[in-house]
Structure formats: C-alpha cells, structure tokens
C-alpha cells in the first residue's frame, strides 16, 4: 500500500468525501474568523456563543425548521447581547457572559431532554460528527461560510484598524461600534456552521488554535490569517485521516492535530518560540 493509497482509499466512502470537504471549509472559515478572535481576546465569547446556540438548534429541531437557522438565530442574538452587555453592563463582563451562556445551555439541555428518543444524539451536538454530514449540510456550510468570508474580505482594512486601535479608528470616523457588532454576528454564524462538524465544546479550539499558532510565526495580519487557514486545512485533512485509521472521534482528532501544531510552534517559532528565548537567555 503506497502513501497515495493511504489517502485515496478512504475516499471511496461518501461520508469521508463529505467529511473532508466539510472539515476543510469549516477549518478555513474558523481560521479567518479566529484571527480576529485571538487579537480581540474573544475566545471566551466564542465558547459562550457556541453553548448558547444549543437551544436554538433544539428548538429548530422541535418545530421542524433547518437546524442551522435556529442555531444561527440563537448564536447571533447571544453574540449581539454580549456586545450590549459589554458596553453598558454594571456587572463584570465575564460574570455576565458566564451567567448568560450557562443559562442558555441549560435551557437547551432541558428542551433536549424532552425528546426521549433522541437523547443519544446529544453527543453529536456536543462533540460534533463531521462524518455524518449530508450533501445538503455541505451546501449550507458553503453558503454561510462564503457570507462570512465575503464580509471579512470586503471590510478587512476597516476591521483591522478597528481591531488594532478602536479609539483611533473611531476618532478618525470609522463606525467602530457597528464593525464590532458585525464581527460578533459573523462569529455567531461561524460557530453555528462549525457545530455540526466539531461540536459545541470544541468549536472554540477551531477558532483560536490555528490563529494563535500563526501569530507565533508571522508578523503581519494578512499572513497570520493565511497561515492560520493553511494550518486549519492541514489539521482537518490529517485529523480526519487519523480518525479514519485509528477509529477515533473525528472532531477531537482534528482539534488535537491543531493543538500539537500549536505546541510545536510554541517551542520552535523563530519569532517568539521558547527555544529562541531559552537560548538567548543562556547566551
């Protein structure tokens, strides 16, 4: 069996083909969005939004509309609510977010527990099932993913300025508040697109890890985003094949590949790697 066979053989299965396409698309959108998440410190918000999307998914299932729509509505509303809380709350921000997302998640679990026959499916929401993705799901992922990427590409200059120096950008006339809400809404959509592939719990890793890895290596935002996409795609492909051959959970496998790449960069990065720091301290 050659190396090529190792990669080609699993593609005989339709679920592997769809899973691979889904993982690559989700990885790409998450990596681009993740660059903003990492630089604006939105990781906790991302985690909160993914949990808060759950009741939306369940309600969509209960009333028979596409899951993505229910999830997206809940995720975007939560993301925007977090934006409002961060601007005018009297509570500490992380406290408010913690209360909000735990409550939403509990509400989702409660609703889910009323569907007796489907409790087993809970795990596919929590942990994702990229190999269970249908052709229709792929279309939905592609459309929503393109919307997110399209908006980010169109506004990339403005988003960069508003992310780097919100005060300077606002004073010079950019609609920074609007851009921040837009970013939160895009985050909500990205998360919903990703949940079916990697699950509620691990979405945050897909968002944060490739971008964080890229930031260790390059010094320009545009290159950071591109490198994050490369890392995410490599991790998606490698992780999926590993899950196929080792017969382990696909979402976890993808996330672990990303984590290993991050740790390698942390040690070896020429810019801020631990090796460089240790050797410069010894010198």
């Amino acid at each position: 069996m050659t190396i090529v066979d190792l990669f080609v053989d699993p593609l005989a299965y339709g679920f592997m083909q769809r899973g691979l396409i889904a993982a690559v698309m989700v990885g790409t959108v998450c990596a681009v969005m993740g660059s903003y998440v990492v630089l604006k410190g939105l990781a906790f918000i991302g985690d909160a939004v993914s949990h808060a999307a759950f009741p939306g998914l369940v309600i969509a299932y209960l009333i028979g509309i596409p899951l993505y729509i229910g999830g997206a509505v809940a995720a975007v509303l939560t993301a925007l609510a977090i934006g409002v809380v961060s601007r005018r709350g009297n509570l500490r921000f992380d406290t408010a977010v913690g209360v909000l997302f735990a409550g939403m998640f509990a509400f989702g679990i409660l609703l889910f527990s009323t569907i007796r026959n489907y409790v087993a499916d809970l795990f596919s929401y929590l942990l994702g099932n990229v190999l269970g993705i249908s052709a229709a799901d792929l279309v939905q992922i592609a459309v929503l993913g393109l919307v997110v990427l399209g908006v980010i590409v169109v506004l990339r200059k403005e988003l960069l300025y508003a992310t780097f120096d919100p005060a300077g950008a606002a004073a010079s006339g950019l609609p920074v508040t609007t851009l921040e809400y837009l970013l939160l809404a895009l985050l909500g959509i990205t998360i919903v697109v990703s949940i079916q592939a990697v699950g509620i719990i691990m979405v945050v890793a897909m968002l944060v890890t490739p971008a964080a890895t890229a930031q260790l290596i390059v010094v320009r935002f545009s290159r950071m985003t591109m490198l994050a996409v490369v890392i995410a795609v490599v991790s998606a492909v490698l992780g999926l094949y590993l899950s196929f051959y080792l017969n382990v959970a696909s979402g976890a496998s993808i996330v672990l590949v990303e984590t290993v790449l991050f740790l390698v960069a942390l040690v070896l990065s020429p810019r801020q790697g631990l090796l460089v720091r240790w050797s410069s301290r010894a010198a």
Partner: peptide
Amino acid sequence: YVPQAEAVDWQFPVTVEEVVMMGRI
C-alpha cells in the same frame, strides 16, 4: 487621535508601515 502607549497591543501582528497606513483608511 493617538492613544497612550499602554492602550496599544504591541504584540499585534502589524508592521510600522501598516500602522501608518491606517491613518489613510
């Protein structure tokens, strides 16, 4: 408007030129 130095994230992946270009955005 130029903020105080400590209000800036100096680890942000931007170059000198990119920061100055922001003034033109």
